[in-house]
Design a protein around this nucleic acid. Sequence first.
DNA 1: GTGGTCTAGACCACG
DNA 2: GTGGTCTAGACCACT
Lengths: 133, 133, 133, 133
Amino acid sequence: MQIQLSEADGTPYYQQVVNQVKFLVASGRLQPHDQLPSVRGLAQQLTITPNTVARAYRELEAEGVVISRRGSGVYISDGVSPLSSKEKRRILNERMDALLTESRQLGVDEQTLLKLLHERSQKFDAHTLEVEP
Amino acid sequence: MQIQLSEADGTPYYQQVVNQVKFLVASGRLQPHDQLPSVRGLAQQLTITPNTVARAYRELEAEGVVISRRGSGVYISDGVSPLSSKEKRRILNERMDALLTESRQLGVDEQTLLKLLHERSQKFDAHTLEVEP
Amino acid sequence: MQIQLSEADGTPYYQQVVNQVKFLVASGRLQPHDQLPSVRGLAQQLTITPNTVARAYRELEAEGVVISRRGSGVYISDGVSPLSSKEKRRILNERMDALLTESRQLGVDEQTLLKLLHERSQKFDAHTLEVEP
Amino acid sequence: MQIQLSEADGTPYYQQVVNQVKFLVASGRLQPHDQLPSVRGLAQQLTITPNTVARAYRELEAEGVVISRRGSGVYISDGVSPLSSKEKRRILNERMDALLTESRQLGVDEQTLLKLLHERSQKFDAHTLEVEP
DNA sequence: GTGGTCTAGACCACG
DNA sequence: GTGGTCTAGACCACT
């Protein structure tokens, strides 16, 4: 599994792992029932402590993205998010505000933004994006 | 000056202010010699402590984006260059990927997302505040 | 804040803290906006590492019970649970099954159980229960 | 003996077997002196390792629910629960408090809870299982 | 002072 | 082998 940790930006390692796994799932590269690398294996690959990987996996489990089976491994879940619609909407609004704020500050109007987002969505599915979102 | 603070994501307030001022400069909305709002004024507008705004301005000054003149105010320094369109596109792509990832994870399809984004854009305009420096 | 850790049962320390804080909130002893003991303070009181307390607080924040403000402290949230109704129902069913199974094994019929539960609910509100649930 | 293993929830297999045997006993489907399936037989039926079944039986024996006779098999014990009524009440109170805590946390009032518990109790009965040693 | 992250390493529980 | 918990202690970010 391709995961890249960036030391430069302030994002915590565990959060970067969470983000990238969610990205891999959302783009279809990781399918339900797929097994993730073991905690220790991924830790060694990324040269961080197993503790940090375990935290990322725990977080992903809490969000309903993976389920972990003691003694067996961690797998992509086929369930849906356990969050309420209100909470889902809150999260989406947050992301949309970030996008709207930056696009305006960069001089991109709404119509152009919607077009760009549609194109990006196509590439998203086509797996033609780099892994690091 | 339009600045939006998001309380939910982990980004510190001072960092959000820094980022958005840098964007405003990069996109040409803020020009060299333009005056920024006062520390207290911006703090009041954003309902955060003046301390936090001061820290943002300090950071911006350290990076050479602004110059602070005692007794006068804080100004955009000259000699700052706007972002290349390639760089702009990279930033937008990052935000779009984050939005697409979250929306898929939450079970929202592209069409619905575009609709939500359009609605949010309207509300965004409605809540726009002008700030006099 | 009264919290008792039991070393005997297999329940992890962080989980015991989570359970008891939720109990204190549900029974009204802790009110929205109340401040919890600091991570280090509670750790010292319970003679466990701050790390473990931090994990409990993190878990409580993820469940929407508390919100934590860096540099300030951890406070009881006034929001509701961010879970979907389906997830809420799943959790309740789990607890109800545990109760039903054990009550039958102890020879308590449904009618008696409902009566006992009603009485317990009264005491729950009256704060006449010991803290450890 | 019909036992259903759920892979999805985090409960260990051996624990699920323990719980379900206890439930079968509590509901009268398994009577004192009834013989349980052999370790290997049940393991094959559930497609898990005999190791896991053996562990479940060991646990059940430690709790006094079954008695294992070398060379003969495993049988439901005829000893009545030796718990004092005070002890019974303590266990029930523990479960009731857990249920009350969760339900308040999730915004479910007492009346609704009692209704849900009644419904759940019916389904509990409806899950009739045939038992064959 | 507050909480947040990470490491190094130990021990336990499960299949 | 797998994941889960906990400790001891370090450093960082924020108010």
